[in-house]
Design a protein around this nucleic acid. Structure first.
Lengths: 190, 190
DNA sequence: TTCTTTTCTTAAACTACTTTAATTTTTTTG
DNA sequence: CAAAAAAATTAAAGTAGTTTAAGAAAAGAA
């Protein structure tokens, strides 16, 4: 819980009592590599905070090809926040790329915190804003930049992930083939 | 107002008294071709229903290039619904592509209807769902299809628009150059 | 450890789309 | 209406990224 407390405090002003109340609502869970934490069209019962490991959020396109939307590593939130909030079905899949330890919060507990802890309302507002911003930025980058520039953005956003996850998944995130990413990487080495 | 009533009745069950109450909250407005109805980062004071004409919703990418996101013609809603709802700043620009007649509703009136007319709540829920669905579909199509296939989708979605708006704007919507769209069209003619 | 499977690399051929530029057509404006 | 401006057409050359295929390296399983 130390990690989550630290993250919350880095975002909003919060008393120690509120923080305690808050952390009580989370449950630690583990998932092993390749396991799915969420599948499209299922109902969204929880959202997660990463303590250890890395997951990918992805969709299938109309030809059945997978596209990675985002990665989430230590001290990041993930889950289908939008569907969680609106009580609609999941719009994407989420899969562990490494063995993963998370803090999960159910909708009941989430709603409780929203009502009882004002700081949590503020905190989630920031979360949603960041998620939206990052999503919009991603779209703009895809429209504006070449594959190599997009790869630079990836490296900047996820400094250590290029060592941790397979090229295949990074390529899918960038919207290119693994072969072409291999060429970009070779070129960058000089 | 006839048009709007008809549209609402095609979506939800609604009494004539509610319908009257509802229509009273809208104001007819006109905009001339090329005029802007909304500009990015401005506050979103109203959303619109098209009585006559056509508008485009677009963004600028990180290189300052315009990208058309969607077109709205007769009997469609448009506006930055998300920002309107969340009281945040506009995420895109909206410009008339023809002389346009719309029904505008202010946030105050919108909120009033939400509280007073249950059918309106249901109606807007459907609106939001459709908007989201169409948005997701657009993203999937861009990921899955070639330019020519995307043009076919455009023709299906907007059957008469290919005659009404310039190729330049259609190309921007499809994410290709006007020159390439010209080639696609020639090829399709046989 | 060894065997199998998956991932990565490299390179050549290919293709969907862009760029440039010149010409024509259409639309806008005074 | 004529003049100017904007949009569309065409074609040739160029390029970012894909496809295919084969071998090398790494990871996973037994």
């Amino acid at each position: 819980m130390e990690q989550l407390s630290k993250h919350i405090k880095s975002v909003v002003e919060v008393s120690d009592t509120s923080l305690k109340l808050l952390c009580d609502k989370f449950v630690e869970k583990e998932f092993s590599k390749k396991e799915h934490l969420l599948e499209i069209n299922n109902s969204v019962r929880e959202v997660y905070f990463v303590l250890k490991g890395c997951v990918r959020t992805y969709i299938y396109d109309l030809n059945g090809v997978e596209h990675n939307i985002t990665f989430s590593e230590e001290n990041w939130w993930f889950g289908d926040l939008q569907s969680f909030k609106n009580r609609t079905q999941a719009s994407f899949n989420i899969q562990a790329l490494e063995d993963v330890v998370v803090l999960a919060i159910s909708r009941e507990n989430w709603d409780m915190l929203i009502q009882e802890v004002p700081a949590f309302v503020e905190y989630t507002r920031v979360l949603f804003r960041n998620t939206m911003f990052s999503h919009e930025n991603r779209i703009l980058q895809n429209l504006s930049y070449t594959a190599e520039e997009r790869y630079d953005c990836f490296l900047k956003k996820y400094p250590d992930l290029s060592q941790r996850i397979s090229q295949k998944h990074i390529a899918s995130y960038l919207g290119i083939t693994p072969e072409f990413l291999s060429m970009i990487r070779r070129k960058k080495k000089g």
